[in-house]
Amino acid sequence: IRKQWHEDITQDLRNHLVHKLVQAIFPTPDPAALKDRRMENLVAYARKVEGDMYESANNRAEYYHLLAEKIYKIQKELEEKRRT
């Protein structure tokens, strides 16, 4: 379902936000690492998460909020795993 606010969101912005999700899960300073085949699954997962939020959000603010919440949860989980 195409929503009115979707018209304001460019593909570049969506790609940028997918990249932010990927960085939250696997922070790497090396952009070449993103071309690694093992990263493809991670990028696919991040695209799916972003797509789900894009579809479920009712406006741009909610879209950003859902993504920020997801990134926060991912970082929290990773922190907890590092501690144990």
Rank of each mutant, 00 (worst) to 15 (best):
P27E: 14
T28Q: 07
I71S: 08
R82Q: 12
P29E: 15
E62H: 07
L42A: 15
I9N: 01
T84P: 14
P29I: 08
N58K: 11
L13H: 11
H19M: 12
R82W: 05
L21S: 02
V43G: 02
R37A: 13
I74C: 11
M39H: 13
R2A: 03
L78I: 11
A24G: 02
I1G: 12
K3G: 04
I9W: 02
W5L: 08
E55W: 02
Q11G: 07
R37P: 15
G51K: 14
D36M: 05
K73G: 10
Q11S: 07
V22G: 02
A61H: 11
A61V: 10
E69R: 08
K35A: 11
I74Y: 15
Y72C: 12
A24I: 00
D52N: 09
A61Q: 14
F26Q: 14
L34G: 13
A44V: 09
L21C: 00
K35D: 15
M39I: 13
R2Q: 13
E50K: 01
D8L: 06
L42T: 10
V43S: 03
L17S: 14
Y72E: 15
M39S: 03
I71A: 14
I74R: 03
M53S: 07
R38Q: 11
K70T: 03
D36W: 07
S56I: 06
K35I: 05
D8T: 10
Y64N: 12
D30H: 05
H65M: 07
T84F: 04
R47K: 10
I25K: 02
A44M: 07
K20D: 07
M39P: 08
R47Y: 02
W5I: 03
R37M: 05
L67P: 03
Y63W: 01
A33E: 10
G51M: 15
P29W: 15
N59T: 14
N59S: 14
L67H: 10
W5R: 05
E77Q: 10
E55S: 08
W5M: 02
P31M: 10
H6V: 01
M53E: 06
D30S: 12
T10E: 06
D8Y: 04
Y63N: 00
D52K: 05
V49T: 03
D36V: 02
E7C: 06
N15K: 03
M39A: 03
Q4N: 15
Q75H: 07
E62W: 04
F26H: 15
I1M: 13
H6Y: 05
V22A: 06
N15L: 02
H6I: 11
E40M: 09
K81G: 10
E77H: 07
N41Y: 01
A68V: 07
E79V: 09
E79F: 00
Q23D: 13
R83Y: 08
I1A: 09
Y45K: 10
I1F: 02
E62G: 02
L21H: 02
K70V: 02
N59E: 03
M39R: 06
T28G: 12
N15V: 01
